[in-house]
Design a protein around this nucleic acid. Structure first.
Length: 625
DNA sequence: AGCACGCCGACT
DNA sequence: GTCGGCGTGCTC
């Protein structure tokens, strides 16, 4: 009988450590059920040893829930490190890292014999030696689109697929993490062209059995490329040659579940642990990546050149939606093929106001802002969806409404009138459209929803720059540059891009020959303000006394300072702790200790207020509203 | 979380 | 005398 070291699946912070159990015939990584404090808890065997250092009497593992070693040692090390860094529980990270067991695919997998695919043939690499030398780079990918078999994909996907092939040819795995399924689709197409069926998609959109099947294939190992959204960064890959993250600044890489670790941070931990090559790729560069470059942790690699980009005057006249120059560019391009028009908001009118007093039109039920989804539609609430057929102003009682701004639908209507005989299609959250052919048409899309055009767009109009930049957030400029760069990358090499409503540094980032200056300037600003990513932050939310206590405990470390507390309603306050990267380990440890203390010592009836919640690297307080 | 253990107030 | 409130600590 040997000793199984088990991490139990419990959200209780005080149980986030290993417990020893007796077992015969359990392998590390299997899921088990153990008797724990008078009941049964599921958990994972993280290690099997001969003897326990526990002084008390060991219980026996009740049963093995799945014989598949779903938690590989290197993934366990990663999960532990990510949880520690974020002052969170390993169990929370495990829930993200390991898909739920599915009996049917598991039985089939256990019965089938293991076949490891042969490595693909090595091809000509765009960055020879990168994988072999385990280099770490910030890659500015080549703009433009390419045809892969029947589909058109971004050139970036072809480049990343080539790097993955370099790893697979060495018999190693590659993990490629993308913001969402739109990029995943392109990357998979590009990968299949160079590595055939050695591609595993780990996608939350798959059915549970499909997802588990894919996960089991990853466990099989061998030269495979694993592609998926943020959770794929935890994929089992014992022989990892390359870890690539596409557009690490995209908010879709931020995990919404505790402990909220973002793909880039997990990738950095994993790279340190496995020593694989690391590629943070994008058309734009995040300030976090810029910081890593300036530290010398990453090397910069730039591929290709973006098409000619012209800044347009804000407006030609008071009513002109599209500046004359942009109009001219579109008119010339549309004769030859599709033209992309990127707008800020979906629907017809993104905002409405009272015609009499000018007050913003608000929902009578929830006071959310009203908007108009279609030209003749009744106003509807952006928050609760309530339709207000007979609206009257809450402040003056007026019944007339004026429309503020133009969404994708209204822009499409107006362009349709300006360009008679040219088809107009809309692509936004409501109207998903992944691709269009190479015939002349106007494609009006919100950012991130742009279809790929066969052969690339002949022109791209980036409208609503002022709208995109009006948001009050630390990251507006960065987000806007990423959105524009992404849309621009869908154009042909010889296309013209017109950017409206952007001035100064942001406009220069798009039009200058050296776009790297933008990320450097953004980072310099954050340094001056002591804002992330120049420093790290953690938010602490809870009752005033508890928050104060946590902030004081962290303050004792030094190299930290605190902002707040500010009232966040329902008797809770929020403080922001700022700390240098060098203090990260100590701060996380102190926060964790306080979380454990709060969970165990403040259970008395009187002291039971709102529980303390800690969010390490919480950027939300800096987003404004 | 649940459950046991342990220490002070009103009860058959 | 003890039944049971709840604060405290532990869970291999």
């Amino acid at each position: 009988m040997s000793v199984a070291r088990v991490v139990v699946e419990s959200r209780l912070p005080q149980l986030d450590r290993r417990f020893d159990f007796l077992a015969d015939d359990v392998a590390p990584g299997v899921r088990v059920r153990v008797p724990f404090g008078g009941r049964m808890l599921p958990g994972y065997v993280v290690e099997v040893v001969e003897d326990s250092d526990f002084a008390g009497e060991l219980h026996r593992v009740e049963r093995v829930l799945s014989a598949v070693p779903v938690l590989q040692p290197e993934v366990w090390a990663l999960v532990r490190a990510v949880a520690d860094r974020a002052a969170g529980s390993a169990a929370d990270v495990l829930r993200i890292a390991i898909p739920g067991r599915q009996a049917r695919p598991e039985t089939a997998w256990l019965k089938a014999e293991r076949v490891t695919p042969a490595p693909p043939e090595a091809g000509e690499s765009i960055l020879p030696g990168l994988v072999e030398r385990r280099e770490r780079i910030a890659l500015r990918s080549a703009p433009g689109v390419e045809r892969v078999g029947e589909t058109w994909v971004g050139r970036w996907a072809v480049e990343l697929a080539g790097l993955a092939r370099d790893a697979l040819a060495r018999g190693e795995q590659a993990i490629l993490v993308v913001p969402d399924h739109r990029e995943q689709r392109q990357l998979v197409a590009a990968l299949e062209a160079v590595v055939g069926d050695r591609v595993v998609e780990l996608d939350a959109r798959q059915s549970n059995p499909d997802r588990y099947r894919a996960f089991l294939r990853a466990i099989d190992g061998g030269p495979i490329a694993i592609v998926g959204p943020r959770s794929a960064v935890y994929a089992p890959a014992a022989n990892l040659g390359l870890l690539a993250v596409w557009e690490d600044g995209d908010p879709l890489h931020d995990e919404p579940l505790a402990p909220y670790a973002t793909t880039r941070d997990v990738a950095l931990v994993r790279q340190q642990q496995s020593g694989c090559a690391l590629v943070l790729a994008g058309h734009a560069r995040s300030t976090e990546t810029q910081r890593l470059l300036e530290l010398g942790f990453l090397d910069a690699v730039t591929r290709g050149r973006p098409p000619r980009t012209l800044p347009a005057a804000l407006v030609d006249g008071p009513s002109a939606r599209i500046p004359g120059m942009a109009f001219q560019v579109a008119k010339e391009a549309i004769a030859h093929g599709p033209v992309l028009v990127q707008v800020a908001r979906p629907g017809h009118a993104p905002a409405l106001a009272c015609a009499r007093c000018g007050e913003r039109a608000r929902c009578r039920r929830c006071s959310g802002p009203l908007r108009r989804a279609r030209a003749e539609a009744s106003p509807s609430c952006a928050w609760c969806g309530a339709v207000h057929a007979a609206w009257s102003c809450t402040s003056c009682g007026g019944r007339g409404i004026v429309e503020l701004g133009r969404g994708s639908m209204r822009t499409a209507d107006e362009l349709g009138r300006a360009f008679p005989n040219v088809p107009v299609v809309v692509a936004d959250g409501q109207h998903e459209r992944l691709e269009v052919d190479d015939r002349p048409r106007l494609v009006v899309a919100t950012r991130g929803a742009e279809p790929i055009a066969a052969g690339g767009y002949h022109a791209v109009l980036l409208l609503d720059g002022e709208r995109l930049l009006a948001r009050e957030s630390l990251r507006v400029a960065e987000d806007a540059v990423r959105a524009w760069s992404g849309a621009r990358a869908l154009a042909r090499d010889d296309a013209t891009i017109v950017l409206t409503g952007a001035v100064g540094r942001v406009a220069a980032a798009m039009t200058a020959r050296e776009p790297a200056a933008f990320a450097a300037a953004e980072l310099a600003d954050r340094r001056a303000l002591r804002f992330p990513p120049a420093v790290r932050v953690a938010s602490v939310v809870g009752g005033p006394d508890e928050v104060e206590r946590v902030v004081r405990a962290v303050g004792e470390i030094g190299a930290t300072d605190a902002l707040g507390p500010v009232d966040v309603g329902e008797g809770a306050v929020r403080s922001i702790v700022r700390f240098d990267y060098g203090a990260g380990v100590d701060v996380a440890q102190a926060l964790r200790a306080e979380i454990v203390r709060a969970a165990t010592q403040s259970r008395s009836r009187v002291a039971k207020g709102a529980p303390v919640r800690v969010h390490v690297d919480d950027h939300e307080p800096f987003e404004g509203i």
